[in-house]
Structure formats: C-alpha cells, structure tokens
Design a protein around this nucleic acid. Structure first.
Lengths: 217, 217
DNA sequence: GGCGCACACAAACCTAGGTATGAGCTCGAC
DNA sequence: GTCGAGCTCATACCTAGGTTTGTGTGCGCC
C-alpha cells in the first residue's frame, strides 16, 4: 500500500481524479474518454482487464468504468478479482445486455452504479462523480489510519500487550499483575506507547486503538 | 424507539424472526407464507403497504418481502417512505416486470436482494436469511447504543460540556480554563459524568462518546 | 566480543485524577 | 416561601499517572 500521508504532509494534490475505462470496443473507449475529459477528469483506457492489473495506478482519487462483457473474463468476476487484490476503486458498470441478477450481484459487491447502454452522458457523469466522491471518502479514511498503523508496527510485543490492557481501562498496577511485571515497568512501556503512537492523551490512544481494532485476545 | 435492553436484561428471546410479506396477490402471499413458515419463521401478511404502517411490529429481528408493483405506490417509493419513518427492516424485493434501473435504485437504497419472478424457493430463503442476519446485526448495534443514549440524556448541560472536553483529551485544569470554572468544579462534574454514564474508566467513556458521536462543536 | 535493543526494575519526584465534607448561590416548582 | 436541583468552590486527603536517572540481563547481529 502506498502511504503518501506520512511522506508528504499535505501536497494539496493538484492532479485531477483518474477515471479508468475498461471496454473492448475502441469506439466506446474513445467516446467515454472525451466525455470524461470534458469535465476535467483524467482518464486511462484499457481494452482488457489484464492490462489494468499490470501497471500501477497513480495515487489519486478515482474510479473504474467497466463493461460487464469483457474479453476473457466477466466484468463481475473481474470485480471480485480486484477486490481480492485490494484494489478498492469504486466501479461503475455498463452493459449492453444486462439482466437483473447481474445487477444485483454487482451492487451487492459494492458497485456504485450499473448503467444499461445506451445511457445519457449525464447519467454516466453523475455515476462517476458519485464514485469519485466515494473513493475520496475511503482514501481519507484509510490515510488517517495509515500513519496509525505504521506507528503501531513500531511497537514491541510488550508494548502492544501493555497498550491493549491500558485501552481496556486497566490501571497500571492491574496491567502489571496481569503481565507479571512491576508497576514501574508498565509505566515505562506505557510512556513508550504514547510516544511511539504519537498521541499525548489517553483519550487519543483509545480512539487510535479503536480505529486499529486493538482488543484483548 | 423501544428499549428492551435496559428493561429486560436478557430475555433470550424465544420468539422467531418475523418476515413481513407485502404483495397484492393473495396467491403469492399464501405461497410465500407457507414457504417462510416451513423454515420456522413467523410471518405477517399485507395486501397493501398502508396496512403495514398502521400496526406496530413486534420487537424481534425480521425483514420485509416487498413486491415492486403495489397498489397505490411503487415498492421503491415505499422503501423510501419506510426509511424516512425510521423503519430499518431490511427489504427483499421481488418483481414480475423489473428492469435494471429499478434494481439499481433498490440496491442503492439498501435492499438486500431483488428477485425476479419466478424465483426458486431457495433463492428467497437465502435472501430472507441474509436479510434477517443483517437486521440482527443492526439491532444488536443499536441496542448497545441505546442504554448509552439514555444515560447521556440524564446529563446536565454543564456535565455534557465537561464530558466533551474530557473525551477530547483535555486535562481538568484546561477544561476549567475553557469553561471559566475552577478545577475542583470540573472534577465534580467529571465524577458525575462517569457515574451517570455508567463507566468506570476514561477509556470506556471515550468509547461511549465515540459511539454517541459526542464531539466538540 | 562488542554493539544495539528489548526488557525489567528501583528510587525519587512531580503532576493529575478522584472523593469526601461543607457551604453558598439561583431558579423554577409546588 | 421553601424545597430540590443544578452549579459553584474550598480544604483536605489519597491514589494514579508520568518522567528521570541509573542498573542490570539476555539476545541476535556484524
């Protein structure tokens, strides 16, 4: 996973959101390309899903426009494949011969929209806008978590144990008893946890732990 | 809202989940009724949506099976109406003449499934099972919040102010300065907050506040 | 073998949190 | 008007949290 948040404090990214267009028909690709570009969004075109998996995508908000019928693989299967690979870009489906079960499957799997060809330009733009907004939300949520995750990764095993018990509300002496330590040692670990996790108050630590899903086994 | 959690500690509800069936065709209703009952679920049948809104529903997990074509109102509009009225029962749609836009709209609005008639019994049972499970999750989530909400309601204005600042990580003296109080007064309010909210540690209070969405204005 | 790191602990010291007890004020309800 | 609730604050006392300084052990790595 690319972690720009801890590298660049606030690049105020001027690069526009990216719309990935996957369709085996060049005419459809071109047509969508000019539509999407006309509203100031960047595009990247692919004729087959495999091409998409090869190159890395830039680290900007975006979405995927996917034809259900693709060479070699169903768009719905490709959606699953992307999810398994951790590519969480929102997907807007389009299809010439769709049916209701397809639609249900796509939407259950998290698709933003499912458009039947022919669709109006505005329908597609609305779907894309909504998809990009969803991606923006997801990105800011995961970005916030990302620094916390890497901070948590720097904790030693003992420090994690102490943190777990501390955010559960135990007092230092209780933690000490539970781990077979002296209270002073717990205090030191606890101080290290606070420093490493980059928080100043217990309240912040508890929130961070909640976000990270840190719980007692 | 019915708060059983604080009234009955753990009734271990023996009553089965309830499936509400709304269809204007008596034959369809009867057929679904026997299907659903055959797996041990309770049912309630309605020929028109208005009937559903009149009587109160029992406080058990459940879901709604809704025909898209209903007398007087579209099932999709009825879905919106239910949402606006705070009825959060998951909905399984069925339809004889559905299309993709309908499906998309229903799924976007949170429908669990969208089945085209004719469907196999097992499809409906799977959808209902999934819907009931979703409702169970939602219910346990809101039930846990419910006691906390009512506890929060007993706080005085000052106590809420203090709580807000405390869970933000401020020290008593900082809260005192911010509210123009002495530190000892803050301590007293803080103690009242802990007692009224039914928590023993700051960690618990922070988690409760998070769940309740208590933040600084 | 020495270096760094995690781990453990102690003494000393300071700050923060928490709880009485007691007391004064205001305001709205009965 | 007085009674209760909410709000305020002081003194006193105790516990919990947190840091610094210093000491020591064991482990893996170069």
């Amino acid at each position: 996973m690319i972690r720009q948040s801890s590298v660049k404090p606030a690049p105020a990214s001027p690069s526009p959101p990216l719309v990935v267009i996957v369709d085996d028909d060049p005419a459809v690709r071109e047509s969508l390309d000019s539509l999407i570009r006309s509203v100031g969004l960047a595009t990247r075109l692919f004729g087959a899903p495999a091409e998409l998996l090869q190159g890395a995508l830039p680290d900007v908000p975006g979405c995927i426009i996917l034809d259900v019928r693709l060479p070699g693989i169903s768009g719905l299967d490709f959606q699953d494949q992307l999810a398994r690979q951790g590519i969480a870009l929102p997907i807007v489906f389009m299809t010439g011969h769709g049916d209701i079960p397809m639609t249900v499957r796509a939407m259950k799997a998290g698709a933003v929209d499912f458009l039947s060809k022919p669709f109006r330009d505005q329908e597609m733009l609305d779907a894309v806008t909504s998809a990009i907004e969803r991606d923006r939300q997801r990105r800011s949520a995961t970005a916030a978590l990302d620094d916390q995750r890497s901070a948590y990764a720097t904790l030693t095993a003992r420090e994690r144990e102490v943190m777990t018990h501390v955010v559960a509300g135990l007092m230092n002496k209780q933690v000490a008893g539970m781990l077979g330590l002296s209270e002073i040692t717990v205090k030191i670990h606890r101080g290290n946890v606070m420093r490493k996790m980059g928080v100043r108050t217990l309240a912040d630590l508890v929130r961070t732990a909640e976000a990270l899903g840190v719980h007692k086994p």
